[in-house]
Amino acid sequence: MKTPVHLWIVGGFAVLWNAGGAYDYVMTQTQSAAYLAMMSDAQKAFLDAGPIWFEAAWAVGVWFSMLGALLLLLRSRLAAAAFGLSLIGLIVSSVYSFGIADRSGLDLTPAQLGFTAAIYVVLVLLWIYARKMTRRGVLR
């Protein structure tokens, strides 16, 4: 089956979108002074207090989403599974971030809440798209 043009468009967008999340993850985990300087003391304290399972879920969310994007471009049916695992990581890390963590001083702006919602929307749409392309035989 010939690869539809939209696969390259969606795959390219997915790689660029996920590159932002990967950059954030790497800069935070390596404790880049320049990157962390953009954060408030409350944001830094929030990240420092995160338990290991939060860190693991965050890593799963970020890296499986990037893997899903790359697998999409490689036309692999495993893209849907990677996006699905990423979604699980996102949900688990959100349980900590929005349900368990001490959020003292972390008042999110409407723009920040909107961006968080956009992460969910984009990831769910990528997962659905990859599943649809697998069913159509585009991803093998």
Results as ranks from 00 to 15, higher is better:
M1Q: 14
M1A: 15
T3D: 11
T3K: 14
T3L: 13
T3S: 14
L7Q: 15
L7I: 15
W8P: 13
I9T: 14
V10R: 02
G11F: 06
F13T: 10
A14Q: 07
A14V: 10
V15T: 05
A19E: 06
G20P: 05
G21S: 06
A22G: 13
Y23L: 05
D24I: 00
Y25V: 01
Y25N: 02
Y25I: 02
V26R: 04
M27D: 07
T28S: 09
T28N: 09
Q29P: 07
T30A: 10
S32L: 00
A33E: 09
A33P: 06
A34M: 09
Y35W: 15
L36R: 01
A37F: 00
M38G: 04
M39Y: 12
S40D: 00
S40C: 08
S40Y: 00
A42L: 05
A45I: 01
F46A: 01
L47M: 02
D48R: 06
A49D: 13
A49C: 04
G50A: 11
P51T: 00
F54Q: 13
F54N: 11
E55Y: 08
A56E: 04
A57C: 06
A57K: 11
W58N: 11
W58K: 04
V60L: 14
V60R: 05
G61N: 08
V62Y: 08
V62C: 10
F64G: 08
S65I: 04
L67V: 12
G68Y: 12
A69N: 03
A69M: 11
L70K: 11
L71A: 01
L71M: 08
L71W: 01
L72C: 05
L72D: 01
L72I: 04
L73Q: 00
S76E: 12
L78E: 07
A79Q: 08
A80D: 08
A81N: 06
A82N: 10
A82V: 03
F83T: 03
G84S: 13
G84M: 03
L85S: 10
S86K: 03
I88G: 12
I88K: 11
G89K: 03
L90F: 10
L90P: 02
L90C: 09
I91K: 04
I91V: 15
S93D: 05
S94L: 00
V95Y: 15
Y96H: 07
S97W: 00
F98H: 09
F98E: 11
F98I: 10
I100V: 15
A101R: 11
R103G: 08
G105F: 03
G105C: 06
L106G: 03
L108D: 04
P110M: 02
P110T: 04
A111H: 00
A111T: 06
A111K: 12
A111V: 12
L113Q: 08
L113R: 11
G114H: 02
F115R: 11
T116R: 09
T116F: 07
T116S: 15
T116E: 04
T116C: 06
T116W: 12
A118K: 12
A118L: 15
I119S: 13
Y120D: 03
V122C: 03
V124H: 07
W127D: 06
I128M: 13
I128S: 02
A130Q: 09
R131L: 07
K132M: 09
K132P: 06
M133A: 14
M133W: 10
T134A: 09
G137E: 01
R140L: 10
R140P: 09
